[in-house]
Amino acid sequence: MTQAAISPGASQRVATGRVKKMTQAFRSAHFAFCLAGLMLGTLSNAADIPLYPTGPSADSSFVRFINGTDAALELTAAGSKAKVQLDAKTPTTVFYPVRAKSDIKGQFTQAQSKSDISTSVKAGEFVSVIALADGTKLKHLTIGEEPDDFNALKVSLAFYNASAKCANAGLQVVGRDVMLFEKLDVNALTRRMINPVKISVQLLCGAQVTGAPLELGELVAGERYSVFAVPAASTTRIFIVSDAVAR
């Protein structure tokens, strides 16, 4: 289990329509060494074949946007009129592929409150931009992750603590004396692999049971999920989302 580095609050990031267009340009112009006049069916083993790349020039990068507030909000990309609504039923976007190090700009909007997003993503990084209530205003938290635990036989479960009200956050398996995660700092994330089982979890802030248990549902091997702890009116609540990637 590892905790990822984070960049809290201030400087941020975005997406939607614009981001969708930022598909990876991995496999562009790289068949420069094609042999001229390839004779079909006449090549021997000694014949050379066109040189091709054995990988991309840069790893894939992704960004998603999460509504960590108690009310619906809208996400817009800079220079676009397209809007994405994030609410209790659909609190997150998928991970959109983006070009590494490109500028990603946009805005969370909720009633009269706005939070401008401006960020970039490193190669191989999965960035989550989480909208949070700041009194009557809106702010956001940006957390990046560079996972190395890809595994189709296990469930990959992350725990994001985006609640300043919840120090040393933990998730305990309901009905069992088992901690999935322990002592997670505020504005931090951690991830681990678990077996594909049906479980419910209870949030602990320090040693204090906080909020209601959360049923994680049928977790599927090979899939990736995140549990978010976000500030609620007088406490901290948790919810789970799939770490789905736009295909």
């Binding site: 991995f26 091709y52 990988g55 840069a58 790893d59 990068s61 592929p97 999965f126 890809f150």
Partner: peptide
């Protein structure tokens, strides 16, 4: 496998390969 191994790159592109 060979077309995804990034033999000429020190770092392996995990996210891209996984995707």
């Amino acid at each position: 496998g060979d077309t995804m191994a990034s033999y000429d790159n020190e770092s392996f592109p995990r996210a891209w390969a996984w995707q």
